[in-house]
Nucleic acid binder design. Structure first.
Length: 345
DNA sequence: GCACCCCTGCGTAACCCATC
DNA sequence: GATGGGTTACGCAGGGGTGC
């Protein structure tokens, strides 16, 4: 493995994963792998690295410490934003995940030697190799635990809150006062928040903070929102029901459809279940784990900005984006990209 | 398989500090 | 001194691990 140019900076751990994966690739396939550059600055953002496999064309690299079904969508969205051939690199890809990536035609390498790479010159698919050592248990900072994610969500959606008293933030985010202090402590240490005066400050590296939130949300917070699925016979019921009165907010596909006109929603996602019984009396939902209606608890207390949609209560674009990306569906990823460019840039 | 124990996450509320 | 706001100790709940 040759390294042509490198600017590792504070990205050491990720580069270490990349090096291990390239070494494993060389050992498994007896083909050369070269790091061309790390932290590559492109018009669309900063790519983790650029590599060349078997002297073929160069690939933009997205490095993920861990790759799970819930984070796959986000990883793909990250990779696709550069509009160039990409490569996912991670510590370990289990066989089911490897099969899924192959089906999606997403090239990947892991540190155990598993790989899927397809070019005009070669096709490599290695799966079933075990990781050399079990993944160490990772300590998740409190900011990226469920309640911390609520605080981050609040300040990303309502940036003025970074100037507000902790009690106000706690109220708007729906968390205890103590949680706010811990969250800001973590955000400061991670470089996402810079105090500019004794009380208050500004969000730094907003793009990266959004990425971190989008990655953590489906793992940490979403499962705690009591997601439930139902089947509803009528398709467009959500267009006529007055959801605002029921404190219900459209998310994911219907929200994306209203914002972009790029999607026909198949699953209607709703945040806010306190008045679900009232709605149920009208639309007669039947419990079904694969149904076309998903209901989750609402986890914020602030009033989301309208985001250009009249007459419909729609969750903040950040949540729409996170939910779409978590599905990993190609069409949803395309729509997510549009939402990010239009509403989160 | 069950019961118990321990650890972690999180909310509550008391306490402390700064400002007016 | 009153009030507003941040910090932190403490206790509860739930989940995971361990022993029987």
């Amino acid at each position: 493995m040759d390294i042509v140019k490198t600017d590792i900076g504070n990205n050491t751990k990720r580069i270490q994963v990349l090096r291990e994966a390239l070494r494993a690739f060389e050992a498994t396939t007896a083909r050369p792998a070269t790091i061309i550059a790390t932290e590559l600055r492109l018009p669309q953002g900063v790519a983790d690295a650029e590599v060349q496999l078997d002297e073929g064309r160069r690939l933009i690299v997205e490095i993920k410490h861990t790759l799970k079904p819930t984070t796959l969508g986000h990883a793909l969205a990250q990779l696709q934003r550069f509009g160039r051939p990409g490569l996912l690199v991670t510590r370990y890809v289990a066989p089911p995940m490897a099969e899924r990536l192959k089906q999606l035609d997403v090239p990947f390498l892991d540190a155990a030697g598993n790989a899927y790479v397809r070019t005009p010159r070669m096709l490599i698919y290695v799966t079933g190799r075990k990781p050399k050592q079990p993944a160490p248990t990772e300590h998740t900072v409190r900011a990226f635990r469920p309640t911390g994610l609520k605080v981050i969500f609040a300040i990303l959606c309502v940036p003025e809150l970074t100037e507000a008293p902790y009690r106000k933030i706690a109220e708007e985010a729906g968390v205890a006062l103590g949680t706010v202090g811990w969250t800001f402590y973590d955000l400061k240490h991670l470089g996402y928040f810079r105090p500019t005066r004794p009380k208050g400050g500004i969000i730094e590296k907003r793009d990266q903070l959004i990425n971190a939130w989008v990655e953590a949300y489906p793992q940490q917070l979403r499962p705690r929102l009591r997601p439930r699925r139902f089947r509803v016979k009528e398709v467009d019921w959500w267009k006529t029901e007055d959801l605002t009165q029921l404190d219900m907010w459209l998310g994911q596909e219907p929200a994306a459809a209203l914002l972009t006109r790029h999607l026909r929603p198949e699953i209607i996602t709703i945040y806010g279940d306190t008045h679900f019984e009232t709605l149920a009396r009208k639309i007669h939902p039947i419990k079904d784990d694969h149904g076309n209606l998903e209901v989750l608890q609402k986890f914020w207390n602030f009033k989301p900005a309208a985001a250009g949609v009249k007459d419909y209560p729609v969750v903040p674009p950040l949540l729409i984006y996170a939910d779409l990306v978590a599905t990993g569906d190609a069409r949803n990823l395309e729509t997510a990209k549009m939402i990010r460019e239009r509403f989160l840039a």
